[in-house]
Every structure is written in C-alpha cells, then in structure tokens.
C-alpha cells in the first residue's frame, strides 16, 4: 500500500517559486491500477517522481507498506527503487545495448551473477512477447516494441509497484491498446500495483480501477473509475470526461431548448439501437451533437448530446422515451448547463 499524505512540492526557479504539488493525499492499495490524470503541467510527473523519491517532497511524505520513503538512507533508497520501478514516455532504453542487455541492467545493479541474469532476462523477453529480439538493438525496434523491452526491464527486479509516466503517450492507438493490455496482464498475473500517469482519459478508462484527477498541483477528484466517469463532479474532471461538451453548448445558438443530454451510467443498451428505436417508435430522428461514450466491462458510460428536431412536444416525447431505458439519465439543456458549472448554482467551489 502506498500512502501519500500532505505531500507538497515546490521548485525554486530564477523567476520565482513554482508550487508543482499542493497538499496531495492519496492511498493506493495493493493490486490497484491507479490512474493519475491531468492536463500538461498539472504536476503528474512531479508526483510520480516523488513516489520513488527522485524528487524530494518539500512537505509531507510517501509511505510504502508503512515505511516512510523520505527517511531512507541513500543505499536503502536505491534498494527501494528495485521494488518501485518505472517506465517512461520516451522508453529510455540504452541505445548502445541490445534488448537482452537492456533488461539485464537492473540485475547488474543488484549484482546478480551473469548467467542467472541472462536466464531471467530471457524469461522476461518471453513475458513481454519479444523472445526473438534478444540480440536486436533498440534503434531496430518500433516504439511499442521498445516499450515492451522497457517493461521487461522494469520487471527484472520483481517490483511491487510499477510507475508508468505517460508510458503510451508516444504510441499510436492500436499500440497503446496492446501495451495497456500487457500492463493489465502484469498487474493480474504478477500482482504488481500499477500507477498510470496520463493525460488521456481513454487510458484510465481502459485499465484503471481507481483514478485521481490532478489540476494545478491539487487532487480535485478521486474515486472508482466507473463512479468518476458516470458522475464527474469537478470541472477539470468534466473537461477530461467530456472534452467536446462546452464547445457543443456554445455552437448551439437558437436550438438551445431542444437539446437533451443522455448520461449513460453503465447502461446495458448500446447507444445506436436506442436512437434507432426512438426514431422508429416515436418518429423523432435525434441528431447527435457530440458523443463521448465508452464501453467498460460491456457497459456504456459517458454522455451524449442530442438535438431533438421539432417543438416542445417532440422534446417531451423524446425525454419520456429515453427515460425508459435502464441506467440512462436524461437531462434537458437547462439542467445540463447547470451541471457544467456555467450558472451560479454549479456545485463545485
């Protein structure tokens, strides 16, 4: 278990002090795949670097299984980093060493005898699906393959915790998916706790069970992924969950009254057939203005913004029809605007 309490970090720079993190409190349980999401500059990298003490917290502390990592001696801290390992956005492989040698690096650092290290590294190559690349150099590999080698290297010392700082941000969607799948397998098969730093909601959605939203160095929301997704509270969370929503409102103009927001809270119904059946049964052909729905464990989460053609009567019928679907919340535009925090009654702050 990782307990981060009252953690603050400020950097003193020529142009003044930067408060990168302010009073962070998080608990990450064993076996979690814990997402930390935020926009660029939110402090994500600083936070993850505080977890393995690459960055010394200005205040507060980080405990791993009850041990305050800040109190460790230099030697103990280096030992700790064999148990809390890290992968990076830019993979950071040794370019002058082949894949096997790259994976052996942490084993060399722990003075494992060479034959044993070769054996272990070879096993790990197979674990990450790169058994045929032992002698290849990183420059000969694709980004996804390089990240696999980096993951194997991070696993070499049998860590308890794997820190991933934007580990898929340099990869295309397909490769991202493959790497995330690998990380999930590692989490499940090896029982390694994973902390995933990302600016992409889709990454959190795909593999995390818990998530914290970081904005300007503070945690603005934290909880189970499904909960946070179906009912985002903080404005930063909404921006991340529904990236194109606020744009939708502004461009609507005169059709304000006819806008309906559907919130899928783990609905069994697929979105497409729902609208198709509404068109058939109510003779209302809704326009999809924006949709940010996602499927998690076979259930639909997220939101969809519909424009209902016609007058108030059509709107009422559409709302009635859509409300009859399980785990779907229906809101007409005025409530919606309120939820977005655009009126004085917005619930945050």
């Amino acid at each position: 278990m990782i307990e981060i309490s009252n953690l603050s970090k400020s950097f003193v720079t020529a142009s003044g002090t930067v408060d990168a993190l302010r009073n962070i409190n998080l608990t990450i349980h064993d076996g979690d795949i814990y997402g930390i999401i935020g926009m660029s500059g939110a402090g994500k990298s600083t936070l993850v670097r505080c977890i393995n003490m690459l960055e010394r917290p200005t205040e507060g502390n980080v405990r791993l299984d009850g041990v305050d990592l800040g109190s460790l001696s230099k030697k103990k801290m280096q030992e700790m980093r064999h148990h809390v390992t890290m992968i990076f956005q830019s993979f950071n492989l040794l370019m002058q060493r082949n894949c096997l040698q790259n994976i052996m690096l942490p084993l060399k650092l722990t003075h494992m005898p060479k034959d044993q290290a070769v054996k272990r590294a070879t096993e790990l190559l197979a674990t990450v699906g790169m058994a045929d690349k032992a002698k290849a150099y990183p420059a000969q590999l694709s980004g996804g393959q390089q990240q696999r080698i980096a993951i194997a290297r991070a696993l070499a010392t049998d860590p308890k915790v794997l820190l991933c700082d934007e580990a898929t941000s340099a990869l295309d969607p397909k490769t991202t998916h493959d790497i995330l799948t690998l990380i999930r397998e590692i989490n499940q098969k090896l029982g390694i706790t994973v902390i995933v730093i990302t600016h992409q909601m889709s990454v959190v959605q795909e593999i995390c069970n818990r998530v914290a939203i970081l904005e300007n160095g503070t945690v603005v929301e934290e909880g189970d992924v499904s909960e946070v997704f179906s009912n985002p509270k903080a404005r930063a969370t909404k921006r991340l969950v529904y990236p194109d929503m606020s744009a939708g409102i502004e461009t609507l103009g005169t059709e304000h009254n006819q806008m309906v927001r559907l919130v899928f809270q783990g609905a069994e119904a697929a979105t497409k057939p729902l609208l198709a059946s509404m068109a058939m049964e109510c003779r209302i052909a809704a326009n999809i203005l924006s949709a940010t729905t996602r499927t998690l464990d076979g259930k639909v989460y997220g939101t969809m913004l519909l424009n209902i053609p016609g007058g108030p009567e059509e709107l009422a019928r559409a709302v009635q029809y859509l409300s009859g679907t399980g785990n779907v919340r229906v809101q007409v535009e005025s409530e919606y605007a309120q939820q977005m925090g655009q009126t004085p009654t917005g619930e945050e702050e």
Partner: peptide, 18 residues
Amino acid sequence: LNPNIIEMAQSSGANTWQ
C-alpha cells in the same frame, strides 16, 4: 547524453558509480 537516460538509471536504483 540524453538526460532521460540518466533519470532512468537513477530510477532503477543505480548509484553514482553504476
């Protein structure tokens, strides 16, 4: 040298010598 490589070494628990 790419500074990210040094950061990788440090995060892998390498001491100065290593």
